[in-house]
Amino acid sequence: MARVTELRVNGVRRRMDADPDRMLLSVLRDDLDLTGTKYGCGEGQCAACTVLVDGQPMRSCITKVGAVAGKHILTIEGLAPKDGLHPVQEAFLEADAMQCGWCTPGMILGAVALLRHNPDPSEEEIVAGMNGHICRCGTYPRVVRAIQEASRKGGAA
């Protein structure tokens, strides 16, 4: 398979040169310096590395970069317009839904995808939809509240 020389990240075409078998997480973090996407396990267990690919949440640590060439990749850095915040980011701040913040970018992108798919989720649906995300600091109830709040404010945008 040919090397990947361009990725569409956050609405911008980024030139790069990567083996197609490399994981998207490493390309984002190490090649493109988009370090808002976090590593937590490298085996699809924690969702800290979540990005949206054509609007779908994907675990970038187990996604080969060759599989996403030409697709729209959204990372936390591209979620809100410059200097602004996405309603889900605002809701996380409002609910104090973080401690160390390492899980937070992945949580936020997971929540954005959930709300796009289901703008008015029940608590059970939030728990089921977010269960792949780990927060070791245990801020889960606050993340649920933040998602409910964003939903109330129509934050699926």
Partner: peptide
Amino acid sequence: VPKVNARAMVTGAHKYAYDMKRPGMLY
């Protein structure tokens, strides 16, 4: 008082040790 630096965490701007990069850096 709201968490100081929280905004940099929700935007992904905060650089943790894991995220650090220096010119000429090797892995």
